[in-house]
Amino acid sequence: MKDMIMSYSDLSSSIREPWHMLLFILLSSWTLLLCVAPPATWAESDKITIYSYSSETSINNFKLLKMEFDSYLSRFGPYELQPVKKREDFERYTKGRKDCLLLISSWHFGNIGQTYSLKPALVGLRNGKKYQKRILTGRGASANVEDAKTARIASAASDLHTKEALSEIFKGKDVADRADILTVPKDIDALMSVSLGMCQYALTTEGSLEDLKQVNPFLHRSIKVVAEGRKSLLLILAFPESSGKVRENMMKLVKIVQHMPLDPDGRKKIKMFGLDGWQPFDSSDKLTKGD
């Protein structure tokens, strides 16, 4: 240590000329910058944004998602997440853009995938499964589909998504359009509002009903599944058709997202989207399945 101090003072004493001093400051600053700056350097043009909009929930956790994902993704490069509250805004921001990834529901992907020339990269997993089934539940043995058509239905999904799911269950678009829907932030709210009488039915998923079973088995026993929809894929991470460096950067980010579940911190972040893993999109994957 003493030697080091000595050598530093020797060096200081050897700086006699002003240009020596300038050179010394420049070299020191450069060395400091190399030590502090992240290992990789990137330009603003390399920046990739993941735009997310979920038609499956109405929870206002945008700030949380933005903060958590930005702090995680920025460790790897100029990447960020931009959650969007309204579908119209989401589509306005992303239409025609080549330098972004889109995190959306499979239902939404089915709606805009072709128009936006999107390619699916990853499919979300929950409890190891990539498909979920939408169900209509009511309370008590007398609950039935006919009754649900004129009753109040709680749903966390967007109005459009809910009506499309209901038109499949009610086998008629007109009936679904006339349905009395209460939009709630999340599935567990929808199930509880049936239990507490604010609504008579809830449109949720099998997974949420399973959560209810864990939390309140007593209530779970009183809930009846009156109808089931088709299975649909969970969230999809998609990218617009592009080429060259932009595509290369996007693929890098896809890999980073895909590996998030391998890191405890990354895994915690993707749980905020209700997922616990990813799987590459397979050409045999269908957005919805009949069984």
């Binding site: 700030k63 949380l64 959560d211 749980k271």
Partner: peptide, 11 residues
């Protein structure tokens, strides 16, 4: 419950 994080508005 980490699986409940999707229902949390703010941390």
């Amino acid at each position: 419950n980490e699986n409940a994080l999707g229902s949390v508005n703010s941390i």
